[in-house]
């Protein structure tokens, strides 16, 4: 019930403030336009780097949204409200991650094929692209709660957040972009996807605990 209440509230807040939802997508469009401009518009050139570009854009566009997961609540005091309600902190962190995934992860995942088309990603890769992002976007959100909890009362903590989160996300990028790359070469991506699944399970178990620990220290 507490989980549902917090998720529902966060989704509602994001829904009212639509920029939360469309900003990452606009960011992806802007950046993807830079690639043909800088690289030349040859379909083959673009297709070659398409798996990496689609994946990195999904990653970066999510990254810019992570800072606010806890920060808004910290600043307006509503963090105190649910922390002092007796709700367990890992559950609170998990709820925040769920809401973030619903409002950012899913749109980013669904938008990735559009970027794929613009980058001439081969047709056979779209299924695995969606599947890999379905496994990876929850990891982004979960690790995002950890990063956001760490920097909750730092001004301009966005850069620091990137430094903290990027090394942790590098395995996810390797497995995820690797999965899409394998399909462009006509290979099976099963191994990559299973490793990605492993990362997701690990993030699901550990990230809420880490985020809760960081929130505790920050509220002290």
């Amino acid at each position: 019930m507490r989980f549902g209440a917090l998720v529902k509230r966060d989704v509602l807040v994001s829904w009212r403030k639509k920029s939360n939802i469309y900003q990452p997508l606009v960011f992806q469009l802007l950046i993807v336009t830079m690639f043909p401009l800088g690289l030349g518009a040859g379909a083959q050139t673009l297709a070659k780097i398409a798996p990496a570009v689609v994946w990195i854009l999904a990653l970066l566009s999510t990254l810019i949204t992570l800072e606010n997961i806890f920060k808004d609540d910290y600043e307006d005091g509503s963090l105190d409200v649910y922390v002092l309600s007796g709700m367990s902190l890992p559950l609170a962190a998990f709820s925040k991650a769920t809401a973030h995934w619903l409002t950012t992860g899913i749109p980013v995942m669904l938008f990735a094929p559009v970027i794929g088309v613009l980058m001439h990603l081969p047709e056979q890769s779209y299924g695995v692209l969606l599947l890999s992002l379905l496994l990876a976007t929850p990891i982004f959100s979960l690790l995002g709660t950890v990063g956001s909890a760490l920097i909750v009362n730092i001004k301009n903590g966005g850069m620091l957040l990137s430094v903290l989160i990027m090394p942790l996300l590098s395995p996810v990028l390797i497995f995820g972009a690797g999965a899409v790359l394998e399909t462009t070469l006509g290979n099976s991506a099963l191994g990559h996807l299973l490793l990605l699944l492993g990362c997701a399970v690990l993030a699901l178990t550990l990230a809420p605990l880490a985020a809760a620990a960081a929130i505790k220290v920050n509220l002290e």
Binding site: L168, S170, P171, I174, F175, L195, C199
Partner: peptide
């Protein structure tokens, strides 16, 4: 915790 995962993946 992540270092082994990162090294393995790399």
């Amino acid at each position: 915790i992540n270092l082994p995962i990162i090294r393995y993946s790399v």
